[in-house]
Nucleic acid binder design. Structure first.
Lengths: 338, 338
DNA sequence: ATGAAAGCGCTAACAA
DNA sequence: TTGTTAGCGCTTTCAT
């Protein structure tokens, strides 16, 4: 900037004014400065600018497990849109379900002075966030409650949604309902299971604990769990799946067997129309989910000082999939050939 | 930091050394400084630090059309992983296919002094990037060639992949092959169409221009185009779909009609196993795609000064989908119910 | 091993 | 309308 000032024969302050479009500069100077700036390839250093101004960085961070998961990428998109309306950019980081990595990311982002953070917590301890929040980096937690602290949180109505789905299975006459989940301790899974139990109890039905399986993580493992249950002595006639991955796995297994079993699953599935059998899904507006969190965050960034709030996104039941499968055996997807 | 120094009774320099883990500090001081820092809730301002050091911001940017598209989010994830190995964070921005927005984003990111940029260009003019690149922000273009400048680029083998797919259709005896694309002028579409034509010509087949349709953008529109062609006087027996959205649309339409028509489509489809009919897809490693671009970028960031390079990712043919559909009519997916 | 001084690039506040 | 001075928070350099 000094060089530009020198080349244009003015002071740095005039240059500063020109590049910030301040109206109080003589047109001749504007011209000269601009010309010199272009010639020298000058670019304002926003770091210095923000430093001086003690200003916000106009950046927020998003920490999720894995951006590849369409749920998170859609969330990222919604958040980015809200951020854009606040002239703010979004930094994304994937924790890869590693609590250590998650903490590292959060701390790193705070050090970089992001204006705020949206975190989808991996099961872990979040007390260290308290410090960062108190020190001036607002955070909103999404989808799961943070552990050990009270903070702004946006959740899905896990209990209500799971109960509604379970009720539908019960209404269809099912009494023996299996639950397929992963990581029993994960907040969402625990809540959804709670909703399942509540609905069963409300209907006066006993839960057969041997039908609850929380060992699967991948689609394939979910399919294996379903297979084990169906091959058992007293197989279930309905399945409650705790998330979309589980649902897909169970659907695959049932399709393989052409078993007449009802499925309810948490989370909508974007290719749901291609599922080979009708499935009831517990959906919710991901758009609303992301926007709500982003809006809460920006309210904090703009200085709101109220107590931590929890916002719940409601769910709805959706029917997806095609009726009546063909009698021909399904063919597994081929791998790459060349 | 001054406050911490005062509280600990040392100079700011000592504080600086402590928080940077420099080995030349007396243990007693380390203790005192750390204690004071914790007590005062001190956090190093990395902005100031980077400013002084004239250092890189340890951030790169990624500009895509829409993060919700699984293709881009997977790309983002791969790039993030490479970035992480360089202790670098990733800022993502969506251009929403708006060239103006794309330029705005790129300029904004450059102003923020990102160390480098990966751009999936929307059809537009990219000469302004030349300036930014010369000014020190390396850029790598992904998936499509930038317009009007020469720069590092990573592309898919669009022509070769499309030709291979077309050849397969021809080998199966098809002579009348339709092409369903969107935005004929988009680099990828144009190249894929070129590959299609090349394969047809090599087989001595004439291309019926009335079978090439580039008006669709959504899945539904692609289905409509397919329907129009099939209802025409001399319908095609094979379809070449220019991307995954087109493929899904055509599959839906053919499934609705239970037509015996072969489909080849560019891009793999993650739920391919659920497609109701066998489809040949032209796939490629998205992982390799993203990593290659990120690695090219970091090579530039580390100072590589060679001429702009173009790297081509090869494709492979994959068979997805289930054989033999059922005789029952398909049921459209339901909307939300509550 | 520690500290004082200078300065990174910019802008707020005031002076001219 | 323009320029001068000072300082954002940190680190580099050099002296102690």
């Amino acid at each position: 900037m000094r060089d530009v000032a020198q080349a244009a024969g003015v002071s740095v302050m005039t240059v500063s004014r020109v590049i910030n479009n301040e109206p109080t500069v003589h047109p001749d100077y504007i011209d000269r400065v601009l010309k010199a700036a272009v010639q020298l390839g000058f670019r304002r250093n926003n770091l210095a600018r923000d430093l001086r101004a003690g200003r916000e960085t106009a950046t927020i961070g998003l920490v999720t497990e894995d951006l590849r998961n369409p749920f998170y990428s859609q969330l990222a998109r919604e958040i980015e849109q809200v951020a854009r309306s606040h002239d703010t950019l979004l930094i994304t980081g994937s924790s890869e379900e590693d609590p250590a990595r998650e903490q590292e990311l959060i701390v790193e982002l705070c050090h970089r002075r992001v204006d705020g953070l949206i975190v989808v917590p991996t099961a872990s301890n979040h007390v260290f966030c308290r410090t960062e929040i108190d020190l001036g980096t607002p955070m909103v937690f999404l989808d799961r409650k943070p552990e050990g602290i009270e903070a702004d949180t946006v959740l899905i109505d896990n209990v209500g949604g799971a109960a509604a789905g379970t009720e539908r299975l019960i209404a269809r006459g099912h009494r023996r309902i299996a639950v397929i989940g992963y990581e029993q301790d994960l907040y969402t899974i625990a809540e959804r299971t709670r909703g399942f139990r509540a609905a069963m109890e409300a209907a006066g039905l006993e839960v057969d604990e041997s039908l609850l399986r929380f060992g699967a993580f991948t689609t394939e493992q979910a399919a294996a769990e379903a297979a084990a249950l169906l091959d058992g002595p007293n197989p279930p006639t309905g399945f409650f799946c705790c998330n979309n991955r589980m649902t897909v796995g169970v659907v695959e297994e049932l399709d393989r067997r052409r078993a007449e079993v009802d499925i309810v699953g948490f989370d909508d599935i974007d290719f749901g129309k291609f599922l080979p059998m009708p499935v009831t899904l517990i959906g919710y507006s991901v758009e609303q989910f992301g926007r709500r969190a982003a809006e809460m965050l920006f309210r904090r960034i703009r200085g709101y000082r109220g107590r931590p709030q929890t916002s719940i996104i409601r769910t709805n039941l959706i029917t997806r999939g095609r009726r009546a499968s063909s009698p021909a055996p399904a063919v597994r997807a081929g791998a790459g050939e060349g």
